[in-house]
């Protein structure tokens, strides 16, 4: 996968990881690492970028006597996921056209 594709994918993956429930850094990496290569040092800039573009908000909650940051998806973030699925529906149609007849 080329870098630009991966960068875009990672953004949406992180948003998808917090789509249903708010989540925190460690959990996000745990959830995503079976799917895509992601490390602690790559996640952090993504979270910052998504926060700056108002796709998620950050809130701190107490956990075991310390603060843990939870990431919460915004309307813009949900829209980004929707846009992504729309784009990929088109790409999937093209993919089916390109690889047609190969499985039969």
């Amino acid at each position: 996968m080329d870098n630009q594709t991966k960068r875009g994918l990672l953004d949406v993956c992180v948003l998808a990881a917090i789509k249903d429930d708010d989540s925190y850094g460690y959990q996000i990496i745990k959830d995503l690492s079976p799917l895509i290569e992601i490390s602690e040092s790559t996640l952090y800039p993504i979270l910052r970028r998504l926060e700056e573009s108002h796709m998620l908000t950050v809130r701190s909650f107490e956990h075991n006597g310390r603060l843990r940051k939870y990431y919460h998806i915004t309307k813009d973030g949900l829209k980004r996921i929707d846009d992504f699925s729309e784009d990929w529906k088109e790409i999937l149609t093209i993919y089916k056209f390109i690889t047609r007849g190969k499985d039969e």
Partner: peptide, 30 residues
């Protein structure tokens, strides 16, 4: 504070402090 929280969470998950910090990669790459 981001890395501090990650280290705490990893320790809670049963990993050692040193190994967790090791897994972050070099400070320069961060």
């Amino acid at each position: 504070s981001y890395y501090d929280e990650l280290i705490d969470d990893a320790i809670e998950d049963g990993k050692s402090e040193e190994a967790t910090i090791e897994s972050f990669g070099s400070v320069e790459s961060i």
